[in-house]
Amino acid sequence: MEANKLQPVWVSFDIPEDAEAGTYQCTLTATAEGIDERGYSCRCYRIYDRRS
Rank of each mutant, 00 (worst) to 15 (best):
L28I: 08
M1H: 08
A30R: 04
C26G: 13
R43K: 10
Q25N: 11
Y48S: 14
L28R: 01
Q7W: 01
R50N: 13
T31D: 01
G39A: 07
T23E: 12
L6T: 10
D14R: 10
S52A: 14
R38Y: 05
C44W: 15
S41D: 11
E17H: 11
L6F: 06
S41R: 12
T23P: 00
R38F: 08
D18E: 13
A3K: 11
A30V: 04
C26H: 06
N4Y: 09
G39F: 02
D36K: 15
L6Y: 09
A32L: 04
C44R: 08
A3M: 05
T31L: 02
S41H: 11
M1N: 08
A21S: 13
R43C: 05
T29R: 10
R51E: 09
T31Y: 01
K5V: 04
G39R: 03
W10C: 06
E17A: 14
R50E: 13
Y40S: 06
E17S: 14
A21Y: 09
F13E: 02
T31C: 01
T23I: 12
E2F: 07
L6C: 07
D18Q: 15
G34W: 03
Y45V: 09
L28H: 01
E20A: 14
R51K: 13
A19T: 10
V9W: 00
V11S: 00
A32T: 01
S52Q: 14
F13H: 02
G34E: 01
D18W: 09
Y40M: 06
G39N: 10
C42Q: 06
G22W: 09
V11C: 00
T27W: 07
I47N: 04
K5T: 10
K5M: 04
D14V: 12
E37S: 08
M1I: 12
S12N: 13
M1T: 11
R50Q: 15
C26L: 09
G39K: 04
P16N: 11
A21L: 11
V11T: 03
F13T: 04
L28M: 05
V9P: 00
M1L: 05
T27I: 06
S52I: 14
A32K: 05
S12V: 06
A30F: 06
Y45F: 13
A3C: 08
G34H: 03
E20P: 10
